[in-house]
Measured scan of single mutants.
Amino acid sequence: ENVVSAPMPGKVLRVLVRVGDRVRVGQGLLVLEAMKMENEIPSPRDGVVKRILVKEGEIVDTGQPLIELG
């Protein structure tokens, strides 16, 4: 699984990683606000951040690609 998608609609509050960062399974990639709750979106696997597909403040839909892992 190379693309991390939004599990719910919401607003991207914070991106916690940068392109080139090594991440571990379960590590927070970004914080999504949904229904006034902050939800940290975890990495599904170990890898390297290849691309960040959203910006802070952006509104996303369920299933929208957020981050690509390499």
Rank of each mutant, 00 (worst) to 15 (best):
N2Q: 02
L30G: 07
G20H: 02
V17C: 01
G28I: 12
P9A: 04
K11D: 15
V4I: 09
P9S: 09
L16R: 09
R14W: 13
V25I: 09
P42C: 01
R24L: 12
R18Q: 11
E33Q: 15
L13P: 09
N2P: 03
P65V: 06
D61S: 07
N2R: 00
V12F: 05
K36L: 09
V19T: 04
P7N: 06
R22P: 04
M35G: 04
I52G: 05
N2M: 06
P7I: 11
V23H: 09
E33I: 10
P7C: 01
V23E: 06
G47R: 02
G26S: 14
L32P: 00
L66Y: 05
Q27T: 03
A6C: 00
P42F: 10
G20F: 01
K55G: 08
E68W: 01
G63K: 05
V31K: 11
A34K: 08
D21Y: 00
S43Q: 04
G63Q: 02
E68N: 00
L29Y: 03
G63P: 12
L29G: 04
P9W: 04
M8V: 10
E68K: 00
P7E: 11
E58W: 03
L29I: 07
I59E: 11
G47N: 02
G63C: 01
A6P: 15
R24Q: 13
M8I: 11
V12Y: 02
G20K: 11
V17I: 10
V15D: 08
L32M: 13
R24G: 08
A6W: 10
V48P: 06
I52L: 06
K11M: 13
D61G: 14
I52V: 12
E33N: 10
G20L: 11
R45Q: 15
G57K: 11
A6N: 06
L32W: 12
L32N: 12
E1T: 01
K36M: 04
V23R: 05
V54K: 04
A34L: 06
D46P: 02
M37F: 12
G20A: 06
E58Y: 06
G26L: 15
M35P: 06
I59V: 12
K11L: 08
D21G: 04
V54A: 09
V19F: 06
N39R: 06
I59R: 02
V23L: 07
I67D: 00
I41D: 00
I59A: 11
I67P: 00
G28D: 11
I52E: 12
P44E: 15
S5D: 07
R24D: 08
R45D: 15
R24E: 06
L16W: 04
E38H: 10
G28R: 04
L69W: 15
V54I: 13
G28Y: 02
L16T: 08
G47K: 01
L69G: 09
L66E: 01
V4T: 13
S43I: 09
A6R: 04
E1H: 00
G10R: 04
V4G: 14
L69M: 07
D46V: 03
R18A: 13
V25C: 01
G63D: 15
V12K: 00
D21K: 02
E33L: 07
V15Y: 04
V23P: 13
D21T: 02
L13A: 12
G70W: 15
V4P: 12
G70Q: 13
V23F: 13
R51I: 15
V19Y: 04
I67R: 00
L30D: 00
K11R: 08
V12A: 07
V19Q: 10
M37D: 05
P65L: 13
D21V: 03
I67T: 12
E38M: 07
R24M: 02
R24F: 05
